[in-house]
């Protein structure tokens, strides 16, 4: 098994990462352990990582890996058993209220009141966070709030529907409303616990476009857990958890490079001729039954294809996705 817990990044990669995140880490997790009452094993078993300010951090892992437990501790709703978590300079165990002011959270299950209007849901959040004094109706709220809500309505494309009950909204729209709401108090970190679960592909893409804009405009650090591996592809850092431990940590490219190689699939009518030729070229291959050649970096795909003279009937290239790497890691970890 490849030990990826603490991969030593190539120097040039480290430099690149350093250039991208100039500031110190916004989230520091040090040897975090959580054991639930009456449990025999740790749900989170001594994990450590840091999230630079402004980055997109993805926490991946199968169900029960400890992702939600981790996010619950980071957002102060659950007390850690041991270890330290510092968010924006505040300790989650000692200064929970200070941490809460700095973070926004999108839960797995929607946290909207369906019988209240979109504006009412926003207003409750705003007054709960002390952004505005509480008033029982929109008209009585300060002008600045009214202005802000109208702008948000336009951003979401629901300017005309702010006074409608949230239960009339689509799943994607509800999610967006939650994100808009969670950004009201300008959190430094936005935690998203499987935000796109249950959304159709169109809504998912739409939501991601919106999240990218949020990152771009507010420079908000995003901490994401997800089951959709393609969503983690654009993360700056990926942590894969399994059984409460971090089993891989790095950029998506590093994780893919460490675990899964590119390969070339070829076939010919005359397999014997191709086999002879590949042997002559001293290429290692598997017959599956078509020929699978792992790219080890000594030759490019182009060089290999150029050198083969046997007429080919199949040519396919395969570049691993994060999903391939993820499955390899998680399965390896299970074995």
């Amino acid at each position: 098994m490849v030990n990826l817990t603490m991969p030593a990044p190539a120097p040039e990669v480290e430099e690149l990462a350093g250039a991208r995140h100039t500031s110190s880490p916004l989230i520091v997790v040090d040897n975090l352990v959580k054991r639930y009452k009456k449990a025999d094993v740790n749900a989170v078993d001594g994990i450590s990582f840091a999230v630079p300010a402004g980055s997109l951090f993805a926490l991946l892992g199968p169900n029960g890996a400890g992702k939600t437990t981790t996010i619950s501790i980071l957002t102060t709703t659950l007390a850690p058993t041991s270890g330290d978590v510092i968010i924006a300079g505040h300790d989650v165990a000692r200064s929970a209220a200070a941490v809460r002011r700095e973070v926004g959270i999108i839960f797995q299950k929607p946290s909207l009141d369906l019988n209240l209007t979109a504006e009412e849901n926003i207003r409750l959040h705003a007054t709960l966070y002390g952004l505005y004094p509480f008033r029982p109706a929109f008209q009585f709220m300060p002008q600045r709030y009214q202005q802000q809500v109208r702008e948000l309505g336009e951003v979401l494309g629901i300017a005309g529907e702010l006074t409608k009950k949230v239960k009339t909204f689509s799943g994607g729209m509800k999610r967006k409303l939650e994100i808009v709401r969670s950004l009201l108090h300008q959190p430094k970190v936005l935690f998203l616990d499987e935000p796109t679960t249950g959304l159709d592909p169109d809504s998912r893409q739409n939501l991601w476009e919106y999240l990218r804009r949020v990152r771009h405009e507010h420079d908000t650090t995003i901490f994401l857990t997800t089951h959709y591996l393609e969503e983690a592809e654009e993360a700056d850092d990926v942590c894969i958890m399994n059984h409460g431990s971090i089993v891989a940590h790095g950029t998506p490219a590093q994780i893919k490079a460490e675990l899964v190689q590119d390969y070339l699939l070829i076939d010919a009518d005359s397999r014997q001729q191709l086999r002879d030729e590949l042997n002559l070229m001293q290429l290692s291959y598997e017959e599956t039954p078509i020929f699978k050649i792992r790219m080890d970096g000594s030759r490019t795909m182009h060089q290999i294809l150029r050198d083969i003279e046997t007429p080919l009937t199949v040519v396919q290239t395969h570049t691993p996705t994060l999903e391939d790497a993820y499955l390899a890691i998680v399965r390896d970890n299970h074995a």
Binding site: R100, S111, Y129
Partner: peptide, 15 residues
């Protein structure tokens, strides 16, 4: 606390 706006209340910075 696991469903509606109550989640939101429990993570807000109030006592």
């Amino acid at each position: 606390r696991d469903n509606d706006f109550s989640q939101e209340i429990f993570i807000s910075p109030i006592s």
